[in-house]
Design a protein around this nucleic acid. Structure first.
Lengths: 249, 249
DNA sequence: CTGAGTAATTGATTTAACTCAAAGATTAGT
DNA sequence: ACTAATCTTTGAGTTAAATCAATTACTCAG
């Protein structure tokens, strides 16, 4: 019943039904082959895994899975972009993560117990994902324990990232939270400034940072007025990251 | 230099210097033997790991490690309680987690690269921890790949927990954040109400939830006035969790 | 290319949460 | 048990951010 509570009618399209063309390989899977979770697999094993997977096309705003649904698959993004979010009891939509091509998500489900998705996942624009059976990957790990190293390392990294995300959210004021978020978008070690692209529409970045879209807009306008960022659609140019950090105290 | 920036003079005691009695086993390590990361180790391997570890006593407020310090060990809490926190550039202390006896922490360092602590760790009261060399545990995993399963499962759980913590922090108002936090402290599936103990002093719970101590106090006073919780020091009795959830909308 | 629907901005107002301050309560250490 | 230090609570005033409302700018599907 938790699965049905959404009043959001946009999401009425079928969910998790792979009606697409049979899988024909060799487009868009280069990134998969170099992903930490897969790059050490022997070709045979990787091919077998891919054979057991399905390629799934998602339209703009199409829901991939719902919070609390049994999780039999995890996902690799071939193209497009997705977002993870939760709905609270009053229906407020809270964005938790965005996912770019080349990334995996819901991969912790491989070892979750019970295996249920912890949030909703939807396409932000038309996207293509590979839908990998949890069971298949797990069997691979069980049969070839040497593969576990990569998975462990990946999971450790994931845990660190989440910890870091949590840290940003303990920053008490909206402006500093936004600044920290922007700094983190810069390729690390950027001193001389650089351009970043918001991975989400502004209203969803706002949601991710626990503030209203209006607040987001005003803070950005203010940073712009102070010459700290230049804004062009979803692209932001940050001329002096150091100064930005100082301003956030 | 980041290591030295704290203006906090409380933390002048030596850090990470194990000057304690040689390790003599068989007190307080029962919990270790049943921890997911260790319970599947063969006795020989576990003993070897314990031999390579040192038991460390920490006094009240004593710092265990600093953010950005090279991480050669991870930890198991034998007794007491610790907290993880970060200091931002203006010296504001932001609490990220609290750790109880029987828990491991900094265990993601086993696979981190570079291995540096992501935050500070200090004892909240006098505590005892086991300081396990990252290298030793890693070698164990490399030599006995069958151990990896437990580690993977543990890491997956950790990632889910952090995700969940993040979710709470995307709740925009302080009252609802606090309510969500309290609900999560209840043993899961508690319907009829129950008592929870705050794992941190109130001012640090406030910091963990990105609010001021005064705000925390006022919200709690208000919940108390509405008969939603009864407060006794750091113990809270929540009579009707369901109603509390409803109130948080 | 066009228009409907969504997203973003800006202004005015209200409210929640912060800050400062001072008095109690609790805790840790002697 | 006592004392000093820290934590907690409460009050009053201020500020940051939310809300409400209206306009403008995008986006994308047809």
């Amino acid at each position: 019943m938790a699965l049905m509570q959404s009043a959001d009618t946009r999401y009425s399209k079928p969910v998790l039904v792979a009606v697409n063309k049979p899988f024909d390989d060799e487009d868009g899977l280069q990134a998969l082959r170099s992903h930490p979770l897969f790059r050490n697999l022997r070709p045979r094993d990787l091919e077998s895994l891919i054979q057991q997977s399905r390629r799934l096309r998602l339209g703009h705003h199409q829901l991939l899975y719902r919070q609390d649904m049994p999780a039999h698959h995890f996902f690799f993004v071939i193209s497009g972009r997705l977002r993870l979010y939760r709905l609270d009891s009053s229906g407020i939509d809270r964005t938790l993560d965005s996912i770019a091509p080349g990334d995996c998500f819901a991969e912790v489900m491989i070892y979750a117990d019970p295996p249920r998705y912890a949030c909703y996942a939807e396409a932000l624009k038309s996207s293509e994902v590979l839908m990998i059976p949890v069971k298949a990957y797990r069997e691979l790990l069980d049969q070839h324990p040497e593969y576990a190293q990569a998975a462990l390392s990946h999971y450790a990294k994931r845990a660190v990232t989440r910890f870091h995300d949590l840290e940003i959210m303990t920053v008490q004021n909206a402006r500093d939270r936004l600044i920290r978020y922007l700094i983190d978008l810069l390729p690390n070690g950027t001193e001389q400034g650089g351009e970043v692209e918001l991975p989400l529409p502004k209203c969803l970045v706002a949601s991710r940072l626990a503030m209203q879209p209006e607040t987001f807009s005003r803070i950005l306008a203010d940073l712009k007025a102070n010459g700290l960022v230049r804004v062009n659609r979803s692209k932001l140019f940050i001329s002096d990251p150091q100064r930005l950090i100082e301003i956030s105290q």
